[in-house]
Nucleic acid binder design. Sequence first.
DNA 1: AACGTTTCTGGGAACGTTTCCAGGACCACC
DNA 2: GGTGGTCCTGGAAACGTTCCCAGAAACGTT
Lengths: 336, 336
Amino acid sequence: MTIRDVAAYSGVSVSTVSRVLNDHPDVSKDVRERVLNAVKDLHYVPNTSARDLVKTAGDSIGVVVRGAENPFFAPVLSAIEQAVEDAGYTLSIRQIKAGEDELAAAARLSRAKKLKGLILLGGRFDYTKEDVAPIDIPFVCCTFTNDFGTVESDAYSSVSIDDREEARRAVRYLTECGHRRIAILMDSASDRSISELRYKGYLDALAEAGIEPDPDLLIESVEFNMAGAYEKAGRFAASGKQFTALFAIADTFAIAAMKAFHDKGLRIPEDCSVLSIDGINMSLYTIPTLTALVQPKEELGREAVKILTDVLAGGAHRHVRLQTALREGGTVRKIG
Amino acid sequence: MTIRDVAAYSGVSVSTVSRVLNDHPDVSKDVRERVLNAVKDLHYVPNTSARDLVKTAGDSIGVVVRGAENPFFAPVLSAIEQAVEDAGYTLSIRQIKAGEDELAAAARLSRAKKLKGLILLGGRFDYTKEDVAPIDIPFVCCTFTNDFGTVESDAYSSVSIDDREEARRAVRYLTECGHRRIAILMDSASDRSISELRYKGYLDALAEAGIEPDPDLLIESVEFNMAGAYEKAGRFAASGKQFTALFAIADTFAIAAMKAFHDKGLRIPEDCSVLSIDGINMSLYTIPTLTALVQPKEELGREAVKILTDVLAGGAHRHVRLQTALREGGTVRKIG
DNA sequence: AACGTTTCTGGGAACGTTTCCAGGACCACC
DNA sequence: GGTGGTCCTGGAAACGTTCCCAGAAACGTT
């Protein structure tokens, strides 16, 4: 079932069928109709590979996403999808697994699919010029953060919140509420994950408030999942260490910790306040509602696409930082 | 950057490069090495479209999924991904939006990508033979349910739980715990959604226990999302209607309802028990832990792939029903 | 010494589209 | 009746691969 069958069936040439299918103006009313009927009769659908192959100047942009199961990414991805469509491009999404190198995956994808541009969603954040050299099309890192000011490359764009600064704001909110014994729940920062920056922001805020950081209040989960966070937070709560607040580097971590604390007999927020960064949908339904610095998820996605299309139109790469909004739930208590 | 460039660079023919790239045996040691070096030097990656185009007997199977943002699908999808890879096929995933017809999407995808087989994830369940006629490759519906016994087509396969029966079991568990005023929270069943079957199971269980169904205890949310469920459940709780238990047709609904009840001053499980079907990861972290009939999500995915590969190998279509497992959390209380 | 066999290599057709180019038909105008 | 234009249509090249087929070289085997 190819375009040739349709042509034969409707008694016109292959070119004409193609024109009808692609809405070219130069085709007469009745021929168009005949062809469309043939298409319907034969259940014909154009072959994507052949189409993509000849359209060497493909209008697709790609997204490489690490861990799409992360509920944070879903709305970002939707926004990207929508924006890409609105901009007249098509989207090609590639998920990568924990171990894979996202830059290598991006390079492969771009060549294999002849992409116009790329968006990288989640992951590391410290690309050098030569890291990105294999990628020969414009790309923008979305929800990535640089250690602001140090590595601001002009080889690619980025859009994200300023993780360090937002973490500082978050923790400052806690200190302003009177908390001084503030624990932090994060995943191991060893591989320059986002935790590293949010941890720095945590330290910044403590310093600002004149609080000596206490290594005892650092809760590290090896894996980035709720089970790990639950287990570490529970162990921490049982250890008897004194603290009045927890700063979780992600909503999922906060939710797991709230459960763990509850299981150990701590009440939230009476015995312990909880605050996090992200603001996923689910955290609206915890009891009490999670207080969080909410990332502008849709805007992150839209902005990524906007930057990319700008760059594709000849613009220069740029780095955009968006701000979170404080959502006051019921997990933070003023004390002292 | 095409295979021709690589051929020129390494001084061999196009055919030879292709052979090296596809691990054909008939190529000498040093030529192979020279070609591989060229590939590396030039950052060459084969074009997928061209490759797919010529490989007319593509080894891909496709997945059409409606609403991948649904946290229930994530583990099913992962399992499918893994199983498909293990079976030596490649995967092509297509998401569809709320309004789209999944059969049309499936038909399009199968032709556009020349697929070997298809898996449909989520959605409706009442396909007739002529509905599926446009799809000319084997397909299996995963997490779909037929109204068991009525429409058991041999034109396609399916794997899912028996929604009506499992809902009956769920509600029976509640009646066995002494509940007689049992509300049900579902989305509008108007379009033969999964709600319809779970609602029937609910009625079955009531009948079995000699309880007259009360239309006042039917809580219907128009949209299938947490916000809608939260709003309806809250309104219901405020209405003053007497009830001791809620059966939610999905974990997400249950979580939203728990929040709504809490906001209206109801305690769970003291004032109201809550039970649902699905068992998503997040429901392990509600307070108390949600009691639910947990679907075998990974097994559903694996089984779907197994059935499909069997059919592709010449087997007959079949319909498999898996069972849920009761996970006793803390949201159901024995009374009376 | 002639002949098969094996091992390697290159040429070129095919996959199913899009699109450039050329040309036929029709019309209007001087 | 030629000229130029618009409207429509078909032929054929091109996209980047894979793979069949043919053939060259090297090596036994009779």
